[in-house]
Every structure is written in C-alpha cells, then in structure tokens.
Design a protein around this nucleic acid. Structure first.
Lengths: 99, 99
DNA sequence: CCAATACTTGCACTATGACGCAAGTACGCA
DNA sequence: TGCGTACTTGCGTCATAGTGCAAGTATTGG
C-alpha cells in the first residue's frame, strides 16, 4: 500500500537518497547514506519495490533501485481525481443516514 | 503527517464512512459503522483532523467531522508536481556519487 | 441543579513494525 | 572449486501505536 510505504521516516529518507542521486542506486550505496543497518535498508527497499514506489533491476549480484516517478505521479493524480469525484460540492454525495 | 494518517486500515474505514455519508458526521454516527470502540473512533477522528484530512465543527455537544476534499486534492497534486520536478527525465537530477 | 447525552482522556494490554545481529543465498572471479 | 562481494532472511528485542474499559469533561434539557 502506497501510504504505508511513506509512513516510515527511514523509508522516506531512503527514497530521498535515491531521488537525490538521480539514478539507480545499489543497496550498499543507499545504506551508506543513513545510520541504519544494511539489512534494514535491504528490507525497506524491497518493501518499497513491492509497494510500487521503487523499481528494482538486478545486474549480477547488485540490485539497483530507482524511483518510479511517473507511476507515483499517476497514482497521486488519479487519487486526487477520485476525491474530486467524491466531493459533495461536485455531486458525488448524498445525505440521509450515515453508512 | 498525511501518509501516517492514511496508513491505518481503521482510519481509512472511518474516512470512507464519512465520505460515503456526504455530510458532516458525528463521532457516534461514525462509531456505528465499524466494530471498534467509541473512544477509538474519537481518537482516530481527532488525529485525522490534526493531520488535515478532516475538519471538525462543534455544535453544542456534538462534533461534526467532514472530509477536507479540496485541501487533500491540493496536497496530492502539489506532491505529484514536486515529483515531476524531481524526475531525472525532466532535468531535476544529477549523476555522480550517491548522496 | 441534576441527570442524560456526546465526546475526550488516562491507563493497562496487545499487536504491529522497525531494528541489529548472524546465518544463509546468489553471483562473479581467480 | 573456493573465496569474496552483494544482498536476503530468520530470529529475538524493543519502541510505537491501536484497542477497550472506565473515569472525566462539556453541554443540553427538565
């Protein structure tokens, strides 16, 4: 889930690290950026890839993670669109009993 | 934080309940929708209001919560815009050493 | 003023998730 | 084939956050 992925400060820092880098980063490179254990970074990056935030490509024994910018943007925008549709002011609501 | 707010399934259910309702909902009304305790609902809604997801208005002893659609949309879209700026393909990146 | 309603808060318990270490797997190179 | 590098996974520990109960606060109406 997208929101769970962004709900941990360490994960956000890792994403920021890769984003700042502007290219695919190996687990080791990302691990150097922050104070947590290598294994922790590995787990977080794998989770972020499963959540669709990152994309993983393997080259030999190194795994490169990069940010899936366009997919993320699309998700956020479609979510915003869905909210707009849902908004009472735009006719997406009803009154009466709650739930 | 916005993402923390959406990272708990119970909270998402509560937001969904209020959204479906299409108007301001009292704590009691929302509590009827789901299986958790009244106090839990109260706490979650207060947190969501602090996070900017919901808006609280008090009328006598009843508190009405409603979804802040436009603010949420604005946040999501500006985040998407920021990601676009950051995207390497659009000139927001650099190579070299990571971090 | 008292009781009832609507919600909030303190407290203890539990579940979830993050963390580090150590062991395991995968791959490349001599 | 053996060793080193790059990463993953199992496990125990700890901190954070969700939950329910009970008590507290605030507001309304008789």
């Amino acid at each position: 889930m997208l929101f769970k992925a962004f709900s941990d400060p360490t994960r956000v820092a890792l994403i920021g690290c890769i984003a700042k880098c502007g290219r695919g980063c190996s687990v080791g490179e990302v691990a150097e950026c922050c104070s947590v254990d290598f294994s922790v970074v590995s787990r977080h990056l794998a989770l972020l890839a499963r959540s669709g935030v990152l994309e993983a490509t393997k080259d030999g024994r190194t795994v490169f993670y990069r940010v899936r910018y366009s997919e993320l943007c699309r998700s956020l925008r479609s979510l915003a669109d869905a909210l707009d549709e849902c908004c009472p002011a735009k006719g997406g609501a009803r009154n009466g009993k709650c739930c």
